[in-house]
């Protein structure tokens, strides 16, 4: 039997392949971020529960705060100073979760609120702190180096270890070049994007496990990836002009977003049909912002925008109750 706690644990466990790939390719910073964010999330949750006079231990054990922290840790750039992760996590728990009434009542995905908040606030740090794959760093960052970057103590400069992500790089580089020139850059590796391809495949594998365990349904990931694919084929069919489909799917946060973030049940649409629209909306927005917006990746914004549309979707996508001729609509005032 599934319990709320077990659902959260399964989701956390399913991130493991992706998490391991991230650590393997991008270094200890990922692990530091994940642990730090999870710790902060649980501490903040405990504090707020205490302020709200709710049972702290019982509620904390449901694992939802830890999961929020984990997802944030996976989304944030690996070489981020500690306080940005702290701001992101604390505001995710306080602003996005508890100000709306706690678990189950939040309108927005807490992790993505936290992410968007720091992305908007600290654009410079957020978009340039992605670590290069370890194999491209001249001397790979050790755990100690990562810690010193994280804490801001010591004098390790991050500039030598960071760079644009393939998704970002391609978008700008393709303006003055053709695809074969752009992809000679080492960050693209031999296949699609060095490291990223494995990270995304890892999250894909974890996501499939979740579907197999019936913890999430296929609707949101399938419609999200489907819509993204259609958009990329429609508008980005020429790799000499724009970012190709392979990069859209296998670089950046696509799989993490499709299987772990967009499927957060609290902030997603309710019915199966609603979920299809919800996922498709995220896919379209994802491509739109990536291709024509100024941010390199867009999972957070796409998810948050569709979170806003959920009441609207729920209004129009009620399933047809058996015995009724057609599906009911809306809510009486």
């Amino acid at each position: 039997m599934l319990t709320t706690q077990r659902i959260m644990l399964w989701v956390m466990a399913a991130t493991l392949p992706g998490l391991l790939a991230l650590i393997h390719f991008f270094g200890w910073g990922v692990l530091i971020n994940v642990l730090w964010c999870m710790g902060i999330a649980m501490a903040t949750e405990a504090l707020i529960l205490w302020i709200r006079a709710r049972p702290v231990q019982h509620t904390l054990m449901d694992g939802s705060a830890a999961l929020t922290g984990l997802l944030l840790g996976l989304s944030l750039p690996p070489l981020l100073p500690w306080w940005i992760a702290l701001v992101a996590t604390a505001s995710a728990i306080i602003l996005a979760k508890h100000l709306y009434g706690g678990l189950g009542s939040n309108l927005f995905n807490p992790a993505m609120v936290g992410y968007a908040l720091v992305l908007v606030s600290f654009p410079e740090a957020m978009s340039t702190r992605w670590a290069l794959p370890l194999s491209l760093q001249e001397t790979p960052l050790s755990l100690l180096d990562s810690l010193s970057v994280f804490t801001g103590l010591g004098s390790t400069s991050v500039d030598a270890f960071t760079g644009a992500t393939p998704l970002d790089d391609y978008k700008h580089a393709i303006d003055g070049a053709i695809a074969s020139q752009v992809t000679t850059a080492p960050i693209y590796g031999d296949r699609v994007a060095l490291g990223w391809e494995w990270v995304n495949l890892g999250f894909l594998a974890g996501g499939l496990l979740l579907i197999q365990r019936r913890i999430i349904t296929w609707h949101i990931p399938v419609s999200l990836l489907g819509a993204l694919t259609i958009m990329a084929l429609l508008f980005g069919y020429d790799p000499d002009q724009s970012v190709p489909l392979s990069l859209h799917l296998l670089a950046g946060g696509t799989m993490l977003g499709a299987f772990f973030i967009a499927t957060d049940p609290v902030s997603a649409a309710t019915s199966n049909r609603g979920k299809l629209w919800y996922g498709a909306g995220i896919g379209v927005l994802l491509y739109t912002i990536r291709a024509w917006g100024s941010y390199p990746d867009a999972v957070a914004f796409a998810v948050l925008l569709m979170n806003l549309a959920v009441p609207f979707l729920d209004y129009y996508t009620r399933p047809r109750t058996r015995g009724h001729k057609r599906a009911g609509r809306g809510v009486p005032s």
């Binding site: 009542s105 913890i215 049940p265 997603a268």
Partner: peptide
């Protein structure tokens, strides 16, 4: 525990 709208009931 609070409802997390997981949708299992709906399925």
């Amino acid at each position: 525990q609070p409802c997390i709208r997981c949708g299992l009931c709906e399925q």
